[in-house]
Structure formats: structure tokens, C-alpha cells
Write a protein that binds this DNA or RNA. Structure first.
Length: 344
DNA sequence: AAGACGGGGGA
DNA sequence: TCCCCAGTCTT
């Protein structure tokens, strides 16, 4: 496999991607990049990388911030548990541990991220196996459905002796990201194509994972007043973020009764998650919190809270409806701009 | 082993 | 539409 290593390293020296965290030495900044990159495309992660680090430049700054501030900086990036784990981790350790084994114990760090940080920041000889590496190795060795364990062993055995482990890991990932593409790989440009056992049928390796998408009918209740909208801290899905009450469609009558309101239908919004298609009926009602003193203080400007994209859609829909009806919108209306109301 | 967890981009 | 992304955590 020496030829494989030489060919890939030679290619990488000529074709490295230019990324904000390339050449970065600060383990904390490397960690933030790697966590942001979990299940997230590089192009999507880059703006958040800059935003997050501008706000929390050091582990200490992150530690001293509130969870809500951290989530606010993460808003829009998705998989919000990542932000929670980063904040948690900052409380747990004074400084980042320097070994793979210790890094693996931290919340939010699995085999990939621990290996990436250990190799990139501390030069440890551990292979980082992400989706790119999985795809590259599956093709090179014609593996249709390799187990994570055997893939890690395989990658570990491939680490070259004379090369910095971090460089090697990045070389493998760059190849996957720019040449060994999921669909229609650019085999004619691939430095290891002559050694690739899967080249005859790249689409076969690794085999496709199928996922079933289920539909969910929900209702959102937008209670608005002069001071803002009634928001609560969400649990389960979008845990830690804020939003208007969201529940299964069939619970609408019960929830309406419990708030003592008489809402109007403001339209529907759709939102897709990895394994779910959400169809959300938006219902709006004026509300001043009367008869529910404990809730009155929850009337806030949504712009101040970390909201998931779904809630932004819901609020936009509600606000468009109110504008269409000539009703005074809630304070945050201007922040998002008013879109024409579209019935149905 | 399977499901949950966001959001977006490319074919 | 479907795929899947520099994955991790929980049943």
C-alpha cells in the first residue's frame, strides 16, 4: 500500500483545499470546526465557524457564556445538541485533553471528532474516519457495507510512517470531498484510480443506505401581544431552543382551551427534517397573558431568542397573515420583513 | 442495530 | 424528489 500513500500525498500537496481552519494550531478552534462539520457540508459550516469564534474566541469565553448565548450563536446550524455539548465540555475541562482516549470521553466527541482533534491539534497517530474516508476506502477496497470498526482498523493501518497524521487524514478527506464524490466520482482525475478495486462500479461502494421518511401533522399556536409573542423553551426536538407551542394537530382543541383563546387559521408551513416531513398548521390569537400571570412574562421579542428554522417559518407565516388582515403585527415583524399572505 | 436529531445543496 | 453531508447519542 506504499504506492497508495505516495500517490495520495503527492496529489494532496498539489491540490489541498483552502479552508479557514487549515493550518490552525489552536486545539479549541480546531474542535469548533470539527464539531460544526459533523453531518454538515463544509460550505455551510464556514460562516458559523467565523461567527461562533468571533463570539467565543476561547474555551474560557465559551465557559463563561450562558447556554442561551451559545445556542443563539449556533442558530441555523442545526443539530443543536452539538452546541449544548460544547458548552458542557467547556465547563468540564480547563483545557482540552491531548490524547484521543481522553478526547473521546468529552460530550459530543465520538470516534471521528476525537481522532480529528488528536491528529490535527496534537499530532497523534489516529485515523479520522468520516463519510469521505468511508467512501474512499469502500471504493478502493470494493467494500459494499463495511462495519465502522473494520473501517477504522483499515484506515489506521494505512497511516504512513513519515507523514504527519493530521496531514494524511486531511488528504484522504479532501480526496473524498473533491474527487471521490458520492455520485459521478471523477475517477479520471483520481491519483489512486489505478489501485482502486471499485473503479469499475463506483456507485456500488459503499452501498446506499435507505431511510424512510414519515409525515407528521402538527399545529403551532402563535399568541401575540404588545410586548411580543408567547415563547416557551422547547423540549425533545429542538431542545434548548425557543418557540411557540407546537403539538400534534389533534391536540389543538385541548391546547386552545387551556390558553382560553379563540385563534384563527393563518395558513400552513412545511418543514423537512432528515426522517420527517412536518406539515404545520399555524393558528394565531391576540393574547395579553390575562388569567395566566406566570405566562405573561413569556411574551418576548422572538429576535432575542435562539429559534429553530421551523419557528422562523411559523412566525413569518403568522405575521404575514396579520399584516394581510390589517392587524398590528408583533414587534419582531420588521426584523423579518413582511411577506404577502398566501392562503392555504 | 435502529432511530433521533437540522438544515441545505446538488443532481 | 432523493441523497447525504468532516457524526453522536440513546434505546
Amino acid at each position: 500500500m506504499e504506492k497508495f500513500q505516495e500517490a495520495l500525498l503527492a496529489w494532496y500537496r498539489e491540490n489541498p483545499r483552502s479552508l479557514p481552519w487549515r493550518g490552525e494550531k489552536d486545539p479549541y478552534r480546531i474542535l469548533v470546526a470539527e464539531v460544526l462539520l459533523q453531518q454538515t457540508r463544509t460550505a455551510q459550516a464556514i460562516p458559523y465557524y467565523h461567527r461562533f469564534l468571533a463570539r467565543f474566541p476561547t474555551l474560557k469565553a465559551l465557559r463563561e457564556a450562558s447556554l442561551e448565548e451559545v445556542l443563539k450563536a449556533w442558530q441555523g446550524a442545526g443539530y443543536y445538541r452539538r452546541a449544548l455539548h460544547l458548552h458542557l465540555l467547556a465547563q468540564e475541562v480547563e483545557a482540552l485533553p491531548r490524547s484521543y482516549a481522553e478526547l473521546l470521553k468529552l460530550p459530543g466527541l465520538g470516534p471521528y471528532t476525537a481522532a480529528a482533534v488528536a491528529s490535527l491539534a496534537f499530532g497523534e497517530r489516529v485515523a479520522a474516519v468520516d463519510g469521505n474516508v468511508r467512501r474512499v476506502l469502500s471504493r478502493v477496497f470494493a467494500l459494499e457495507n463495511p462495519a465502522p470498526r473494520m473501517l477504522r482498523n483499515l484506515a489506521q493501518g494505512l497511516l504512513p510512517q513519515g507523514e504527519a497524521p493530521g496531514e494524511w487524514n486531511q488528504a484522504l478527506m479532501d480526496l473524498g470531498a473533491t474527487v471521490c464524490l458520492p455520485r459521478r466520482p471523477l475517477c479520471s482525475e483520481c491519483p489512486v484510480a489505478p489501485l482502486c478495486q471499485g473503479r469499475v462500479d463506483p456507485g456500488r461502494y459503499p452501498g446506499a443506505r435507505r431511510r424512510k421518511v414519515r409525515e407528521e401533522a402538527l399545529a403551532a399556536l402563535v399568541l401575540w401581544g404588545r410586548e411580543g409573542v408567547y415563547l416557551e423553551r422547547l423540549e425533545g426536538r429542538f431542545a434548548g431552543l425557543y418557540g411557540v407551542p407546537l403539538f400534534p394537530q389533534e391536540e389543538l382543541p385541548r391546547r386552545v382551551r387551556s390558553f382560553g383563546v379563540d385563534p384563527r387559521f393563518a395558513g400552513e408551513v412545511h418543514h423537512t427534517l432528515t426522517h420527517r416531513r412536518l406539515r404545520v398548521g399555524v393558528y394565531v390569537a391576540p393574547w395579553d397573558g390575562e388569567g395566566a400571570a406566570s405566562r405573561r412574562e413569556q411574551l418576548v421579542d422572538p429576535g432575542e431568542k435562539p429559534l429553530p428554522k421551523l419557528m422562523e417559518k411559523v412566525l413569518r407565516q403568522a405575521q404575514a397573515f396579520l399584516a394581510h388582515e390589517g392587524i398590528l403585527p408583533f414587534p419582531h415583524a420588521k426584523a423579518h420583513g413582511v411577506k404577502p399572505f398566501e392562503p392555504g
